[in-house]
Every structure is written in structure tokens, then in C-alpha cells.
Design a protein around this nucleic acid. Structure first.
Length: 698
DNA sequence: GCGTCCTCGTTTTTT
DNA sequence: ACGAGGACGC
């Protein structure tokens, strides 16, 4: 037996070595899930003498796939290069590059479009059908089409009137995709599964090719992804799924927790392994997590346990305003840094919604606490990145109309909507290529000149492809397209930001594996670039506090976690009106809690600024289950900003008072330094400290 | 074609 | 509050 197996606990070892037939591995948070997956792959190769290329390991993100590859290297070295570690989408793209031509009208050279482009095409389809894009937003149709494609919905499951309008848009959108040799993200999976369904010989080929299939984060699979795994694994049944239903937080994009149960039904010989020993958190943190998740009804009971000792108490803090919550946390972070020897990079702030980062950002700037917000636009969605990619696309195919449309006026060349429409009309009417249409289209002389200059620029670029490396070519495109001049002309801040992105793109291009010629390399790069994300842009060693949503924190861990803004209508969100949704929100909170290794801070505030208004807010119902006493924060830091509070006990019972946040109300009682006040527009009486700075007599 | 004003909406995220 | 995107006027 290989000595690396000694590093596993009993359950992990059993899960690794029992590798024939279907297995269900229930892996709790911090229980060594990735370790089991990688060791299992190593075991299958080393001990069962299986060829590495017979193994397919599927994850959801590129990041996870990459992580798996890295960790495999330490176990099996270069043999890992033959293991197919892919995401659902990249695996399907691989299959389709080979097999898609069995679908009439489809070509192997397809481009993959992201959902911005999907939305653009849906919009275009609607315009062609004379549908009002203000009446129904293209985005809504796009998401309905996505639901249809991922088999989450059928036309009849929609409202009849809506379906009648949606159906022609769907068809037109499909026409556009086929006409332009494009596939959207859902198509990758849908077409793969359709080919498998209609061509048993192709399915059988892939079943033979991949005799061992491992799927990570199984609780996040959608129905169609489940079907894909089921079909591929049906023959040999060596299907190993790893998941934790308590961490299922993506139902809004089709994840179906029931897939774990479907697996048990479809592979009745499955063996179950439960990894419930947590190696990440202290006992106190784990107890908190267990107490929390126990409240969910729709789950198979499971308690995580740990050998580690109690550790620090979980702290719960109440603030009276969103600003003071952020202020207090900034103070605490400084204390942890200066007094307790923690580094900033040990610390994470986790919140439910992106916009909640604002107050923390403000305070961290004030205190010069280094931070980084992980969120927002993914790298490949930024304008300058997409523009440059469009130029690259044009230089291998000067007739790529969508790429043309994207950059003909970026940087500005004085070509607008109407000229593009004219060109499009010519293409459609005369059924000619973009290049020909540019020659033929009737426009003002100056416009014509601009167009033909643009065209010669593109043509001359494409001629340079032969004698340049991809990096050199990229630089040339950047220069000749006028994009460099455009970036340079921007003002300082903008320029810096965009230049960074361009540089980053350049870096990612220089890391591309070189194929035969530069042209081939570029084609391969462009075919797969849409499937990439900013996976490897992070990982800087900078010492900063990490700020991110609870969703993005999944899979990560920090010594210290501040779970913040824990208020009703934030978590659980105001849209969570059904039990199943509230349970998902609770799982999200659970994910946040289980990120913490040493210390966990929970906090909420009595009031919060939202949409330009100060609103009363109340402690999240999830916190009620935790039996941790919340400490009310002292209100010192606010004094400098707010009017001097009146002396303690300045009011009497029955007085009408005004509270800056809660509005007018009447004092019902005074207990232990607090007034109990019934505010006019809050149903239940609130406790307010007697010398609250925001309290005035009416 | 482009700049500016106004209206509208506003969860989470990956591919 | 604020940003995106449409409407409108030059």
C-alpha cells in the first residue's frame, strides 16, 4: 500500500479504496473532501492499475479542476496529465468538438458564447420579431430559454400567454446560433446529452473511454447534468459522487439537491461513506454550525465532530447602525492584528449581498486596513477584454459579424447603430459575407472610408499571423486596432484599471499552450476562452482582509470569519418566502459559519441604509437558534458624528420621543438602562438604550 | 453619431 | 444612492 494512504482516517480510507461500483460520499464541510477525491484517483491508478485516461473527474469550476490537478501532481506526478479533470461544460465542449457534426447544420469549429452575448442575441431575435423589449426584458426570455434548455422547464410549464411569445423568440434565437455557428453554455450540455441519446454508439464509445467517473460538489448538479452522469456511468457503474446537501446553495441556477436521492435510486448498489470528522474548525464553531443546520427539515441528519478543543467563544454583536457595525469590526480587526498577532490575510468578511461591502470598505480605507473585494465582473466579462478578444476573432475570421459589431466603434470611429443595421440588412438580403457587404453597403463617403480602412486593418493583421508568436501578434493587434491609443487617452484612474486588465489578458495569452502554428494556437485559444474565468488571477500573496459574498466563500477557509449584516430580509433574504428557500438561506449561513477555523464573529445592526433610505432592521431569525448572547456594542464612536445625547433617564414613561431611525414613538417603560419604546410604524416595541444619541424628545 | 438627462430597478454565480 | 440603459436633442 502506498504510504500516502496512511494520511487518511478510517472513513476516508474506506471511501478511497472501495472503488468498484457506485459510491456516494457524503463529505461534510472541512472533512477533507478534495483530499479523498484526489487520493481516490491516485489509488485507482496505482493500486488498481487503471489507465489514467480512463478516469474522468468532473467539477463545477475551473478553479476546482485546477486545484485537483495540482494536488494530484503531488500524488502521482505526471500521470495526472492523462486524467481528464474537467468542468461539466469543458467536458461537453471536448465531446462536441469531436461529435457535433452528427447534428445537421452544426460545425466542429463552433464558438461558445457567454450569457451577455446570449442576451444580445435574444434581444436581436425579439427585435426581428417585432416584440417590445421593454414589455418583456430580453434577460427574462434568456433565462427562460436557459431553463428550457437545461430541462428545468417546458413551454407548457410557463403561463400560456407568456409561452406563446417566448416560443418564437426561442426559435429565432436558435436560428441565430446555428447561422453563426455558436453555442451557448446550456447548449454544451444539451447537445452532448442529445447526441448520447440519439446515437447509442457514440455514448457507448464514451462509456468505454471513461470507466471511472468522479463528480465533485454533487449537490450542485442540475437535472440535465445528472442525466449526463447517469448515462455515462450506466455501463460500468464506477460512479463516485461527492457532495454535502447541507452546502447546496445554488438552486437558483438549477442545482437540485434531489439528485443525490436520484443517484441512490438509479444506482441501487451504491455504497455510502460519510465523512463527518471536521479538520477545520474549533469545537465551538462546529457546535454553532451543527446547531444551525439542524433546524433544516429537508436533510439527512448528520453531525460534524472534531478532535479539536473548544477554542474561542463564537461572538455575537449587535450594533445600532450599519456604519457602527463596520466601525466596530474595523476596530476589532486592528486589535487582532496588533494585539493577537493575526495577519490581515487570516481574516474574511462574509456578507449576503455584494452591496453590503460598502460600509466595511469605507472604514477600512479610513483605518488603512488593506482589503480586497472578491466579486463583481469576472475578468473575461470586462469590456476591454471582450473587445480585444473580438479583434482576435476578427483577425482569424474577418467575416465574424458579432465580433465586428462589437468593435467597429470601439474605440470610436464614428460608426453607429444605423450603419451597422444597413450592413446587416445587406448581408441578409443578398446572402453575402460581411466583407462583401462592407463593399456594397450604401453609406456616406466618409463612413465608407472608415469601414474600408477598418477592413484593411483587419486583413493586414491576419496576414501577420504566420510570422509572429501569439504574444507578438496580440501586441500588434492592440496597437493597430487603435485600442492602445484609446486606453492611453483615458484619464488616470480608468487608464490604470483597464491597462491592468489588458496586461492580465496578455499574461493569460502567453500561458497558452503552443500548438503547430500561431493560427492554430489562436483558434484553439478562442474556442475555449469563453469557458475560462479569472481562476488564476487571484492567489497573490498580498496580506489583505478578504471581503466576499457567502456564496463565493464556498470551498475556502479563514482563521477568522466575520459573518456580517445578519438581519432578516438580508439573510434570509426578503424573497425567501417558502420553506425550501429559507432552508437554502440557512445552508448559506452554514457555509459562512463553517469557513472559520479559529474565530467566528456574528454581527447585525438595528438599522441599515438601503436604496438611499435608513431602514429599521432586525436580527436574523437564524441567530435566534444559536443561543449566543449578543453583546450590545458601546456607542462611543458615534458621538463625534451625532448630537450629544441627553443625560441618562431624561424622559419619563409616556413621553413622545423621536428616534432618528425608527421615527416617532412613545416610551412604555424603562428597564435596566433601556427604554421600551413603541414606535408608530413598528409593530413590536423596541429596546433603546436610555442615552441613545439618536433619541430626542418630540 | 454622440452627449446628456431621466427613469428604473435593485440576490446569490458559474460556465 | 447609484448605475445602467433608453429617450431626446444637437
Amino acid at each position: 500500500m502506498k504510504d500516502y494512504l496512511m494520511k487518511l482516517n478510517d472513513n476516508q480510507l474506506k471511501a478511497c479504496t472501495d472503488s468498484i461500483g457506485p459510491s456516494l460520499i457524503i463529505a461534510g464541510a472541512g472533512s477533507g473532501k478534495t483530499r479523498v477525491l484526489t487520493y481516490k484517483i491516485a489509488y485507482i491508478i496505482d493500486e488498481m492499475n487503471v489507465n489514467p485516461y480512463e478516469i474522468l473527474a468532473i467539477t463545477f469550476t475551473n478553479k476546482a479542476a485546477k486545484e485537483m490537478k495540482t494536488r494530484l501532481y503531488n500524488l502521482i506526478g505526471n500521470k495526472r496529465d492523462f486524467v481528464n479533470c474537467a468542468t461539466f461544460h469543458s467536458f461537453c465542449a471536448q465531446v462536441l468538438r469531436k461529435e457535433i457534426e452528427v447534428i445537421p447544420g452544426r460545425k466542429r469549429s463552433f464558438q461558445i458564447i457567454d450569457d451577455d452575448e446570449t442576451e444580445t442575441l435574444v434581444k436581436e431575435a425579439m427585435v426581428e420579431l417585432n416584440q417590445d423589449i421593454k414589455l418583456v426584458k430580453p434577460k427574462l426570455y434568456a433565462s427562460s430559454i436557459s431553463a428550457l434548455k437545461s430541462e428545468l422547464a417546458t413551454l407548457s410549464s410557463f403561463d400560456k400567454y407568456y409561452a406563446e411569445k417566448l416560443e418564437p423568440v426561442y426559435r429565432k434565437y436558435e436560428d441565430l446560433l446555428i447561422k453563426n455557428n455558436l453555442l451557448d453554455f446550456d447548449d454544451l450540455i444539451l447537445h452532448t446529452i442529445n447526441i448520447f441519446r440519439s446515437h447509442p454508439e457514440i455514448l457507448s464509445k464514451y462509456q468505454e473511454m471513461y470507466k471511472y467517473i468522479l463528480v465533485d460538489e454533487f449537490q450542485d448538479t442540475s437535472n440535465i447534468q445528472y442525466d449526463l452522469i447517469k448515462m455515462l456511468g450506466e455501463k460500468y457503474e464506477n460512479v463516485f459522487i461527492v457532495g454535502d446537501e447541507d452546502q447546496s446553495i445554488y438552486s437558483f441556477r438549477g442545482a437540485n439537491i434531489e439528485n443525490i436521492r436520484k443517484f441512490m435510486r438509479d444506482f441501487p448498489n451504491y455504497k455510502k461513506f460519510v465523512l463527518d470528522q471536521n479538520y477545520r474548525s474549533t469545537k465551538n464553531i462546529l457546535d454553532c454550525a451543527n446547531t444551525l443546520i439542524k433546524k433544516n427539515k429537508n436533510r439527512i441528519p448528520k453531525d460534524l465532530w472534531t478532535d479539536s478543543k473548544g477554542g474561542e467563544e463564537v461572538k455575537m454583536d449587535e450594533s445600532y447602525s450599519d456604519k457602527s457595525e463596520a466601525r466596530d469590526i474595523a476596530d476589532e480587526i486592528k486589535r487582532l492584528y496588533y494585539r493577537e498577532g493575526y495577519e490581515y490575510k487570516d481574516i474574511a468578511i462574509l456578507y449576503r449581498n455584494n452591496f453590503l461591502s460598502r460600509n466595511f470598505e469605507d472604514e477600512f480605507i479610513k483605518d488603512k486596513i488593506p482589503y480586497r473585494i472578491y466579486s463583481g465582473l469576472s475578468f473575461y466579462k470586462r469590456k476591454e477584454v471582450k473587445d480585444m478578444i473580438s479583434y482576435l476573432r476578427l483577425s482569424i475570421n474577418p467575416d465574424d459579424f458579432y465580433a465586428f459589431k462589437r468593435v467597429i466603434n470601439s474605440p470610436r470611429r464614428g460608426i453607429g447603430e444605423s450603419t451597422i443595421e444597413k450592413i446587416e440588412a445587406v448581408i441578409d438580403k443578398e446572402e453575402i459575407s460581411l466583407s462583401e457587404a462592407i463593399e456594397k453597403v450604401e453609406v456616406y463617403k466618409t463612413v465608407k472610408e472608415t469601414l474600408s480602412n477598418f477592413r484593411s486593418m483587419i486583413i493586414s493583421l491576419s496576414q501577420e499571423l504566420d510570422n509572429k508568436t501569439l504574444e507578438e501578434f496580440f501586441n500588434l493587434v492592440y496597437l493597430r486596432s487603435g485600442y492602445k491609443a484609446y486606453i492611453d487617452s483615458l484619464d488616470e484612474d480608468e487608464r490604470k484599471k483597464r491597462q491592468e486588465n489588458i496586461d492580465e489578458l496578455f499574461n493569460s495569452i502567453s500561458e497558452v499552450e503552443t500548438l503547430g502554428s500561431t493560427l492554430e494556437t489562436l483558434i484553439d485559444y478562442l474556442q475555449n476562452v469563453t469557458l475560462k474565468t479569472d481562476e488564476d488571477i487571484e492567489s497573490s500573496d498580498e496580506n489583505h482582509v478578504s471581503m466576499m459574498t457567502m456564496h463565493s466563500a464556498k470551498g475556502l477557509e479563514f482563521k477568522i470569519v466575520f459573518a456580517v449584516c445578519l438581519e432578516n430580509d438580508i439573510i434570509p433574504g426578503y424573497r425567501a418566502d417558502k420553506v425550501s428557500l429559507i432552508e437554502e438561506e440557512r445552508r448559506l449561513f452554514y457555509v459562512a459559519v463553517t469557513r472559520a477555523k479559529e474565530r467566528l464573529y456574528l454581527s447585525y445592526s438595528d438599522s441599515r441604509y438601503k436604496y438611499g433610505k435608513m431602514n429599521h432592521s432586525e436580527k436574523s431569525v437564524f441567530l435566534d437558534d444559536l443561543e449566543i448572547h449578543s453583546k450590545r456594542k458601546k456607542e462611543i464612536s458615534l458621538i463625534e458624528e451625532k448630537p450629544t445625547p441627553p443625560p441618562s433617564g431624561a424622559y419619563s414613561i409616556g413621553d413622545r420621543v423621536n428616534h432618528k431611525i425608527n421615527g416617532d414613538g412613545v416610551i412604555l417603560a424603562e428597564i435596566e438602562g433601556f427604554y421600551i419604546i413603541l414606535f408608530d410604524n413598528i409593530k413590536t416595541p423596541k429596546k433603546v438604550i436610555v442615552n441613545h444619541p439618536l433619541l430626542k424628545k418630540v
